[in-house]
């Protein structure tokens, strides 16, 4: 999987799925949502809002990234995989320690109280 994103589409072309209410995610943590059969980790971070990346940790193949600790490393807002502690940028999906293990980052939108995801 590469961090390269598909060409940006306009908001209307994206297929949005409402996954949960904002209040369902404890600020500073993540949850896993099933979006069109794909495991997506959705994080809620202080001021920078909602982020979504794949939930599957490429190194182990386990569906766990939403259970990692979030924070920042320099400019990057990251989650640390709970298994081997490698860090993923929440905005791009890039794996900072091993770029070949990067994941896809997905589109997010908050509509009123609803959290919506569109696969990238």
């Amino acid at each position: 999987m590469s961090p390269a994103r598909t060409a940006p589409m306009s908001s209307e072309e994206l297929k949005w799925t409402a996954v949960c209410k904002l209040g369902d995610i404890l600020p500073g943590t993540g949850v896993c949502a099933l979006v069109e059969g794909r495991h997506v980790a959705v994080f809620r971070i202080g001021d920078s809002g909602i982020h979504a990346i794949d939930n599957i940790d490429p190194r182990s193949g386990a569906s766990v990234l939403s259970r990692g600790l979030v924070g920042n490393l320099g400019e990057h807002i990251v989650v640390a995989s709970p298994l081997y502690k490698n860090h993923f940028d929440l905005r791009t999906g890039e794996c900072l320690e091993a770029p070949e293990h990067s994941v896809r980052a997905h589109h997010v939108r908050v509509n009123g109280d609803d959290v919506l995801i569109a696969l990238a």
Binding site: T29, V64, L69, L83
Partner: peptide, 21 residues
């Protein structure tokens, strides 16, 4: 409350995570 958000996955789920999650 907020303490939960500080815990490693193991402490957050009160169990040791294994290789398959």
């Amino acid at each position: 409350g907020e303490l939960a958000t500080l815990q490693d996955s193991n402490d957050y789920f009160l169990g040791n995570i294994q290789k398959d999650g």
